[in-house]
């Protein structure tokens, strides 16, 4: 009989959450903070699936459904986050291009 139970998973979730918070508050880099957000979301997902396994009524899949939605929305959020980073990158580049144009004239 295995000795692993619900608290083991919850502790992993708590550790993920705490480390995610640390990443969020100590990082300066925007992409680094987004990584911390992903850790927090994973922490919540571990909780959801652990509770679904141990606490929910037999046959109920609410926690797993929730986790799937979280994964989907996390992907959408990451896509928008990257698009904004890309926009910033392109803004930089356009500024450079304009400068070189000015110099040519």
């Amino acid at each position: 009989m295995t000795s692993i139970g619900l608290p083991h998973f919850l502790i992993v979730g708590a550790a993920l959450f705490a480390l995610g918070m640390v990443t969020v508050v100590t990082r300066r880099n925007a992409v680094g903070i987004l990584m911390g957000v992903e850790l927090i979301l994973n922490a919540a997902n571990v909780n959801f699936i652990a509770f679904n396994h141990y606490v929910a009524a037999p046959g109920s899949l609410t926690g797993q459904v929730f986790s799937i939605f979280v994964i989907v929305l996390a992907a959408a959020e990451a896509a928008i986050g990257l698009a904004i980073v890309l926009a910033i990158y392109q803004t930089f580049k356009t500024i450079d291009v304009q400068e070189t144009d000015l110099l040519k004239e």
Binding site: I33, V37, A44, N47, A56, I80, G81
Partner: peptide
């Protein structure tokens, strides 16, 4: 927009963790 994404992501992540605890306590959403 970048700042909004980051704060929004953190806030919704924290909210989600709270919701997971509620789900654990009550076994329903």
């Amino acid at each position: 927009a970048l700042k909004y994404v980051i704060y929004g992501g953190v806030a919704s992540g924290v909210m989600l963790y709270g919701m997971s605890i509620l789900y654990g306590l009550f076994a329903t959403t």
